[in-house]
Design a protein around this nucleic acid. Structure first.
Ligand SMILES: [Mn+2]
Ligand SMILES: [Mn+2]
Ligand SMILES: [Mn+2]
Ligand SMILES: [Mn+2]
Lengths: 234, 234
DNA sequence: ACAAATTTTTAGATTAGTCTAAATAAATAG
DNA sequence: CTATTTATTTAGACTAATCTAAAAATTTGT
């Protein structure tokens, strides 16, 4: 009746990793208070009761801190896991677009699967193969092997109201439909957006893209477009 | 109390796919009779009772035919799924070796994960990116998108007893240790093996590899080495 | 052809991950 | 500050995938 206890590195399951990533993204948005059960449930399309169950498990594994009725926060270990998953997701997206010729609106779901492949050597060799890219096809920063990533000094187009030139550097909405719409505007990462006029009434823009096509951009669309100033400063 | 029944394409789980692949490989070896519960259990390091459970599920899904106490066989659908998994496994192995510079003895476990990534477009684009390779880094044929693969007309080195030149074209043992040993012999796919003498007593060989190094090959090793005749015929 | 050995299945239990419905705690609004 | 509303947790149930132990079927050896 003797039991031998062996301490095995506790791996995270596919499911746990999805919770960890969701909590990380909610913390990025909130970056103040703890994340609520409900917010996690909404973001994963799960019922709150299921979330309560899982956060207990993650808390036992020291991946989050959890105070009943008061939400959760990732521990250092939890953040490391999250950044590793995000690193893999974004590197695979670069691979799919740059090497396999997928379009930027086609890669997210495949990367959702690939981000769970477990191999340190694989992700690092993939990183090298791709030339250690700093941004993914949607302009999101890619964490390096130590989890470091430089957040871009960009802002939403919807915060700009004066005539000026800005550079398109990222999106806040990753839906296929939205990305495809931007493609029809010939808007790609790095494109120059010249604001020709701002409509005070509906907050829409008339812009010229890459000195070529003149387009109309609604407030709704502008709010999901990230840009930085075209004047070297920043 | 009305129920709406929606017919959803029934996807195979990770676990089911591993059973399907195991059964396929056992059928390749046996290619006569049905595959026994026990053989599946051994090949997956699982208990027979668990296998019985799973083969009931696979039978319900029409992936295998199952007669209680008399083993299983893959249906057409089952074989298609198996070939698709094997296609993915071997294409990913090519990717890992050719593009990411992994060694041929390092790729199997990573490919075991990647083979379950679910995306028709991904596997076909990967195939194109790799130049539609016909063989993986271990000399195994890669099924095309219709599941067709040309079996090689090769034979085990241990069936050759006369002096002759043969070409190394594959392995029957995929263990890291074995593959590493072949590497120390400077034996790579395509290497020329000149049989200089065959020892009738212990069935070992003295050979010259690539017209360079003279090596000793035991019967045990020879039995896992696949070759074809270097004289154009075949 | 029958007894013994082997293989396979069944029965019952466990864990991860999910759900619904009910209970309870926290937040909000008068 | 209390009542109502909202959020969270608990309780109980289900499925997939696994196990052990026991029962049943098949195979083997004499
Ligand atoms: Mn994505
Ligand atoms: Mn992205
Ligand atoms: Mn392999
Ligand atoms: Mn292989």
């Amino acid at each position: 009746m003797n039991k031998i206890t062996i301490f095995v590195r506790m791996l995270t399951t596919f499911t746990e990793e999805n919770y960890i990533k969701a909590i990380f993204k909610l913390e990025e948005l909130n970056h103040k208070a703890a994340i609520s059960t409900n917010d996690i449930a909404v973001s994963l399309a799960m019922k709150p009761a299921s979330v309560t169950d899982m956060i207990k498990r993650l808390s036992d594994k020291k991946i989050i801190t959890y105070k009943k009725y008061h939400g959760v926060l990732l521990t250092k270990k939890g953040k490391e896991i999250a950044l590793d998953i995000i690193r893999k997701h974004r590197l695979w997206e670069v691979f799919l677009v740059k090497k396999l010729n997928f379009k930027w609106d086609e890669v997210h779901d495949i990367a959702e699967q690939l981000e769970h492949i477990n191999s340190k050597e694989l992700v690092n060799k993939l990183d090298d193969f791709l030339g250690n890219p700093k941004f993914d096809p949607h302009g999101d920063a890619i964490p390096d092997k130590d989890g470091k990533m430089r957040y871009q000094q960009s802002f939403s187009l919807s915060t700009v109201t004066n005539k000026q030139k800005v550079i398109f550097s990222g999106v806040l909405n990753h839906e296929t439909k939205f990305l495809q719409y931007l493609t029809t505007l010939e808007l790609n990462l790095g494109s120059v957006i010249e604001i020709e006029s701002f409509n005070d009434y509906d907050h829409s823009y008339k812009v010229k893209i890459n000195k070529k096509n003149q387009e109309f951009i609604s407030e709704q669309v502008a709010s999901s477009i990230l840009v930085y100033s075209a004047n070297g400063k920043s």
